[in-house]
Design a protein around this nucleic acid. Structure first.
Lengths: 158, 158
DNA sequence: CAATAACCCAGTAATTTAGTCAATTATAAG
DNA sequence: CTTATAATTGACTAAATTACTGGGTTATTG
């Protein structure tokens, strides 16, 4: 499990789909415009997302992408895994060159750690994020009116 | 919070320190030999670890590095943060170019997510890992004797 | 003084990220 | 049928990050 900007782009794009794709398919050009991600980079990402059955495509005018299923059944971990593809474990994925058990054990430990993160992100669905979003935007507007109190600083930045 | 191999190297090296540095300081050459990380790369990593007060150094013959405090007071998140340094949020760290509130909100959401991972890794200390390690190595030896039963496959690989 | 090992710095190969460009293919609409 | 739209494919490149090399210096122990 790697956590890089690439995964963030993918999650952002998928969230955009979840937010805007309820009626009609969403074109990558739209996502590119809204989320400020280059069209060609989106193409690369969505090729992988499609191969991993997270989205379906509709060609031609009015076409674009749709979530392959409900937002409640697509999880953040799946999205990140899809675009990171072929993470090949840790350079010590069973086949490789751990001289002593010791080395391999620290690797194994790291796998444990990232596996737990993976499980954490496997529990968060796009639907969860959409909901959370609405909650936050509401509370953000409330904060703007009632003057933020300090804890809500990061929200007030917007 | 980024999760890359760089952070894994740092955690592995720090764990090596925790395991072998109880008596005397541990030289980077030793860690390099045991963990198969290039000496110069370790130098880079430890420069950052030292700047972040996670290790102390002893120069001269017999010198090396020590944990700056007990393994129970050094957490995985601190190690990863130390070597990743200057993560500058998400390209939208307050100062930047979010055209609409919308974009900024997806960013904020991602921050939330990685913040939760950060908190998770902030609860795991080196001491926890050392303990876990011992438990695993013991159970690994037990499994080797009693013939592993399937679930313990990854341990049995060693 | 000599050996050790941290410390520092400049450079560089390899990989990943991010993006460009140029085609081709499917399809809806006129 | 033609045209515009938008996915799809692929090759190629720029920038950033990761991982590493090598050369030096400084402090310390024996």
């Amino acid at each position: 499990m790697r956590l890089t900007t690439k995964g963030r782009y993918a999650v952002t794009a998928m969230l955009d789909l979840a937010l805007h794709g309820t009626e009609r398919p969403v074109s990558l050009a739209d996502i590119s415009g809204r989320q400020d991600i280059s069209l060609s980079y989106l193409e690369q990402l969505f090729a992988k997302l499609r191969r991993n059955d997270l989205v379906t495509s509709v060609r031609g005018p009015g076409g674009g992408y749709r979530l392959s299923r409900g937002g409640g059944e697509i999880f953040v971990a799946q999205i990140i895994d899809a675009v990171n593809e072929a993470v090949d474990a840790t350079g010590c994925g069973g086949t490789s060159d751990c001289q002593q058990g010791e080395v391999c054990l620290t690797h194994h430990l790291w796998c444990d750690l990232s596996e737990q993160i993976h499980q954490f992100l496997s529990q968060i669905s796009l639907a969860d994020l959409v909901e959370r979003r609405e909650v936050q935007s509401i509370s953000a507007r409330q904060d703007a009116r009632t003057q933020a109190q300090g804890e809500t600083l990061s929200v007030a930045e917007l």
